[in-house]
Design a protein around this nucleic acid. Structure first.
Lengths: 110, 110
DNA sequence: TATCTTTATCGTAATATTGCAATAAGAAAA
DNA sequence: TTTTCTTATTGCAATATTACGATAAAGATA
């Protein structure tokens, strides 16, 4: 097999898993942190920041863009990539919700 | 290749990516939610909750346990699985930190 | 002891991911 | 127009993930 059985889970479960998966690679975490650190958004130099070849970085950017965590604007012949707060917050809120449910539960076990 | 170049990234980047990756599958999100919902922790019936075969569920549980998101206690001949708040909170705090940095930045671009 | 219950592991097949060299595509500059 | 610069795409190889049937391992029960 190798393919996830996404059709058997709820839409939310699939969405959260998709977002988490997109952040499930150190290069993509590094990209996120770089976009956060940098003031101006002329982000062609992400490639120089990462220990990876340009096609590989481009692929990681594409994955982040596919799930909506970043968005890109064409800026001359370069491209300006930015974090899309909406998608990111969706994940953050979900984790906060889980965390507060855990708080209420106050481990009855383990 | 197919293997991530983890040695070129910071320890934190690798840790966060590892945790995010572990949650990057709807079945594992469903497991998390089930553990959160259930009052008692006699959790052998996770298998019945999921649309997956027992070996597959066992594998997903193992992955969550490997990264520390859940922990398991032997309880007779069954096993009691629980969420490990420490590992989970590490991820939550990271996202909150990123989120507050985004807030301060107030998109100068895109 | 023999059997049942529960969970883990093995083996295997299908598919996905990661990475990069080569190359293409597009806009800017000469 | 030709060149240059930046990013995307293609093609491929290596590895990882997902899924499950078969089977093993270990404690509980008869």
């Amino acid at each position: 097999m190798g393919a996830s059985k996404t059709d058997h889970f709820t839409e939310e479960q699939n969405t959260i898993a998709m977002l988490a998966k997109a952040l499930g690679h150190p290069a993509r975490i590094a990209i996120l942190e770089y976009l956060l650190k940098v003031e101006t958004c002329i982000c062609g130099d992400i490639v120089n920041e990462l220990p990876l070849a340009q096609p590989t970085v481009s692929q990681h950017l594409k994955e982040l863009k596919n799930v909506g965590i970043i968005k890109g604007n064409v800026e001359g012949n370069a491209i300006c990539y930015c974090i899309d707060e909406n998608a990111f917050d969706k994940l953050k809120f979900y984790f906060e919700e889980v965390s507060s449910k855990m708080e209420k539960k106050k481990n009855n076990c383990c």
